[in-house]
Structure formats: structure tokens, C-alpha cells
């Protein structure tokens, strides 16, 4: 799954929302490659192993999954959201499903340790271009909304250049 995204993050103690634009790539066996274009440039790689910041292929900072348990469970959940593995999702969340015509909404309320950080997650889309919106509401009142557009799906394996993004 490749897409452009607009992330709107409302942090409770800040006066106005922070808006990020960039490019998004998800591949089942690799993870998420998150490229921020504005307001500054940054490359983030999110895999089950951790959260890494890179610049032109060089590692700038790494937060290994093991370092903080909350990060680890969050990363797992974040990656699962795009995987469509409902059985595994059901272990972490109680799910609710709504559909009207081509549009659908999945509501996820976390169970267990994730509930300490996240209040709920909403994933919505239409059958044609599957995921359109992802909203995450945190327990502390922060709210993140990610809109995906120009999404393309492919069942082919990653090109070598793309594979390098995850290394």
C-alpha cells in the first residue's frame, strides 16, 4: 500500500493542531515507511523491531521496541491496523463494524496494556480505496487524524530500492 497522507495532530496543551504532509508505504513483511515532507523533512521507519529515524539512508536515531513496553505494543497495533489481520487485532481490541453502501467504519477499543495510552481508534474507508482515514484518540486528550489519498495497492513484492528503505 502506497499513499500520500495528511496528518492532523491536536495536542491538548498546544493552541493549534499540527499538520504534517508526506508519503506513506506499507508492506506486510516489512512495516511502515513514513516520509514527512512538510513542515520539515524526515524519514521514519516503523517495524516490529522498533522506531527509527533516518536521513538519506543513514540511521539518525533508533528507539528499539524493547526499550519501552508501551512503544512496543503501540507499534504492533499500528502495524496490525494496516495488515487486515482481524484475528490478531481482536486480541488487542474489541471491534465494532459499520457499513453503509461502499463506506465502512471500524471502531477499535483497546484491551489490556494499550488502554493506558489509547482511548479508541477509528479506521474508515470505502471498498474501492480501502483505508481513507485513521483517527487515534489518546487517553490524555491528544487526537491524531491521518488522511490517506492517492492510495495504490500492489500484491507484488517490494522493489530492491524500496526494500532498502526498511534496512
Amino acid at each position: 500500500m502506497r499513499s500520500d497522507f495528511v496528518q492532523t495532530k491536536k495536542i491538548s496543551v498546544l493552541k493549534f493542531p499540527l499538520i504534517t504532509k508526506g508519503h506513506f508505504l506499507y508492506a506486510v513483511d516489512y512495516g511502515v515507511f513514513w516520509k514527512i515532507n512538510t513542515p520539515f523533512e524526515a524519514e521514519l521507519v516503523i517495524t516490529s523491531a522498533g522506531y527509527f529515524e533516518r536521513k538519506n539512508g543513514e540511521l539518525l536515531a533508533a528507539t528499539p521496541a524493547g526499550a519501552k513496553p508501551q512503544i512496543q505494543s503501540y507499534l504492533n497495533a499500528f502495524l496490525l491496523l494496516f495488515s487486515g489481520k482481524f484475528e490478531e487485532l481482536q486480541q488487542l481490541f474489541s471491534l465494532s463494524f459499520l457499513q453503509s453502501g461502499n463506506d465502512w467504519v471500524v471502531g477499535l477499543t483497546p484491551k489490556g496494556r494499550l488502554a493506558k495510552v489509547i482511548q479508541n481508534i477509528q479506521l474508515s474507508g470505502s471498498l474501492a480505496a480501502r483505508v481513507k482515514n485513521l483517527s487515534i484518540k489518546e487517553v490524555n486528550g491528544d487526537f491524531t487524524k491521518i488522511q490517506f489519498h492517492d492510495t495504490a495497492y500492489s500484491t507484488q513484492s517490494l522493489s530492491e530500492a524500496d526494500q532498502k528503505l526498511f534496512q
Binding site: S12, V13, P39, F40, I46, Q70, Y74, N140
Partner: peptide, 21 residues
Amino acid sequence: LLGLQKQLYSPLPLYSAQLLI
């Protein structure tokens, strides 16, 4: 400031609100 921005704009959850203040 850039470090702060990166944290704020990250898709991952943040530190506590009180800490930010």
C-alpha cells in the same frame, strides 16, 4: 526546536501534556 518538532509531528503518542508545558 527541531527535536521537539519531530516528537510532536511523529505518528506515535507523545509524552504527557504536563511534561510538554
